[in-house]
Design a binder for these strands. Sequence first.
RNA 1: GCUGCUAUAGUGUAGUCCGGCCAAUCAUGUCGGCCUUUCACGCCGACGACUGGGGUUCGAAUCCCCAUAGCAGCACCA
Length: 504
Amino acid sequence: MDESEKNEKLGYLDNKFSKNRISKSVKEKERRLPQLPFSEKGVVMRFAPNPSGPLHLGHARAALLNDEYVREYGGKYILRIEDTDPKRVDPDAYRTVLEDIDWLGLQITDVVYQSSRLSLYYENARQLIEIGGAYACTCDNEEFRLLKGRKEVCPCRSQSEKETLDLWDKMEEGFFKEGEISLRLRTQIDHPDPAMRDFPLFRILNSPSHPRVEAHLYPLMNFSVSVDDHYLGVTHVIRGKDHIANTCRQKFIFDYFGWQIPYYRHYGRMGIEGVVLSTSDIRKGINEGRYTDWDDIRLGTLRALGRRGITPAAVRRAVLEIGIGETDIQFSWENLFAKNKEIIDPVSHRYFFVPDPVAVKISGTKPTIAKASLQPSDPLQGSRNIAFHDTVYIPSVELNRKIEYLRLKDLFNILIKIEDGTISAEYAGNSLEEARSKKAPIIQWLPYEENVPCTLLTPEGVVKGLCEQGVLNETGKEVQFERVGFVKIDKFDKGEITAYFTHR
RNA sequence: GCUGCUAUAGUGUAGUCCGGCCAAUCAUGUCGGCCUUUCACGCCGACGACUGGGGUUCGAAUCCCCAUAGCAGCACCA
């Protein structure tokens, strides 16, 4: 897919093809994000995931919000892979994160890996030490925590720049083992917020080994992020409010170096109804066999959403509507589904799917071929031909409703007869008007001879049924099973179609 | 415990900075109707909110104070 195709798919190109009624009304409904200050000359923004697993809805918000601003103001959009903690790096994630970003349609202009920038961090650490901004602390963690709580300095804090530099050399050389020493920033030990007091900048890690680089001395995020944001020229940072404290911490670092601080904006926490979002919890669930994989449709990962038929454009619209407010919110599937429907309804092909099918022989008529529209709002997309011989499958629920007069959609009316437990039907005319006036249910059906088994996976359970053979051409696409809902055709395997229920 | 952020209908969101045009916007949802060879789409209508209490003011969703609730940070994670 080239760039323009991609944009069009995401609803960005307002070209001659998108002048139809639906996309126009959608466009009018779209609201804009609030303006960012200092954006006149364009912006440099970044999306900075930790490569610990595939991306989920929470990542999508950060990624899409930033993406949208870069699209609006122009500039650079940097993907920064934050892999400075080998404990939290999943080698596969280097690939999956990129795949997910591609799916989302982000306009990334630059990609950097923090693990390739360790020497930059070391150099800046050295500088920071030289100007007296940091000291090497050998205190026990718990001990330091207690001192900090009492606003008391630790003995290491009084070391001279020379002493710190010597210790730093040893840290770089590998003289210290994990946990023995860390480099701390000199902030204010009596800062009212305990979270600000002399927080750490670097630590030693002897294991596990890093998949991309040989190292033992790693920066902590507040240092690497500050250094990168500065050297990469980041102008605006949109991130979750769980980073508010980090923003304050990073300002201490910027101040030491005399760097210009980017514009920060923090959006609120986002909870998602009934879904596990945490990467570590998902991983655990997969390992324990509770989920099939990262794209298990019960998950909130982007690949899971894609698999059940949620489009990236819908995710984008939903996320932009939520915006950058600081209020904690409850993300609702209803709203996402509505956005998705806006997108897929006008283009999804329609098919009949008959759940729990019952065969009914119809007397009093001759074989014929029904013509049904593939896409009712756009006849140009063609139609399906469904052959009627003499027996059809209809959903068993329709019989349970005890209504005798029915219309088979796009075919004709029938009268159901149940005698001694055998079900049959009689042809009852072609008139649609008559069916309407008698308020006959208009139902989906399939010929006895031509159909294909289909398993529909829904949140409520598995529905076995039959569907039209035309569905075989729709693998990987979203279609609508008439009177059932939108589904994504997952695969055709062993003579059977598997589909995932997307939403009504 | 300390520090900070937030608070508009079931959900999301506009309005809050610079008080009156807000008996509060839009979307979604639910219900009802219309349209329609789908229980989809579209159209019409209804339902539904300023967390509470004080204060300032002629006038407060909007400013101030207190309370309450939710969330975050106080990691050698990001």
